[in-house]
Simulated assay, not measured.
Amino acid sequence: MIYHGNRFTMKPGADPAAMEEALESLRNQGRAIPSVKSFVVGRDYGGEYEWGATFVIEDLEGYWEYLIHPAHRNTDRVGLPLVDKFVSFDITDDPDPEMGKKIAALHKRRYDSDPELTKLVSDLSEYTGSAAPGPHGG
């Protein structure tokens, strides 16, 4: 199993209705993407982030489905413009020592095929994690 997590903080002054739309879009990812086995979206406690989401996915094939699904793309479109700081991470019990590289390659493939997404992510003030292109085109 792969547990794909996101932690994020909204920009100061972000519109509450737009924030709720983005959070609901994250919840919809969990409901709409067939490869998501379970998920949680909510407040993040015990760190420097305000919100978090975790999606449980069985394998790399399902992970790719998750990454390119229209529900995920909608969250990028409505949510990323509101986000200040963002980190993504993956936890897996798969014994493959190359799993981290394989996950990063999926993210890179997605960014390489979607310049609009890459721009949205690059405009974040801080983004680390799963093959992040980095702030401001890094």
Rank of each mutant, 00 (worst) to 15 (best):
W64V: 13
I68R: 14
A14G: 07
D76F: 11
W51S: 05
R77G: 02
A32S: 12
H4Y: 15
V83G: 03
I57R: 02
L120G: 03
P97R: 03
V36S: 10
K101W: 05
K119H: 12
Y127P: 00
D96R: 00
T118G: 03
E48K: 06
D93R: 00
A17L: 10
A71C: 05
G46P: 09
N28R: 15
T9C: 09
A104Y: 04
A53L: 09
A18V: 10
F86E: 01
Y45N: 06
I2F: 15
Q29C: 13
N6V: 13
E126W: 15
A132I: 04
K108H: 14
P97K: 01
K102P: 04
E61M: 03
S35H: 09
M10Q: 00
K85W: 14
A22S: 12
R27S: 05
Y63T: 06
A104H: 10
A32K: 12
P12S: 08
F89S: 03
P70Y: 12
F39I: 04
P97N: 01
E48D: 11
K37I: 07
A17E: 14
Y49I: 01
W51I: 01
E98K: 14
F89L: 04
V36W: 10
F86I: 00
P135A: 09
E116T: 13
L106M: 07
Y3E: 05
L67T: 04
S25D: 13
E50P: 05
Y3M: 06
P133T: 11
F39W: 15
P115G: 02
D112R: 09
E65H: 09
F86V: 02
D76C: 12
R43F: 08
S125L: 07
K37S: 08
Q29D: 03
E20C: 03
G79F: 08
S88N: 06
W64E: 14
T128H: 14
H72V: 10
M99C: 01
E65S: 09
L117Y: 13
D123K: 14
R43C: 02
E98T: 15
M19L: 13
A22H: 07
N74V: 14
V121P: 02
P115A: 11
F39V: 07
G129C: 05
E20G: 04
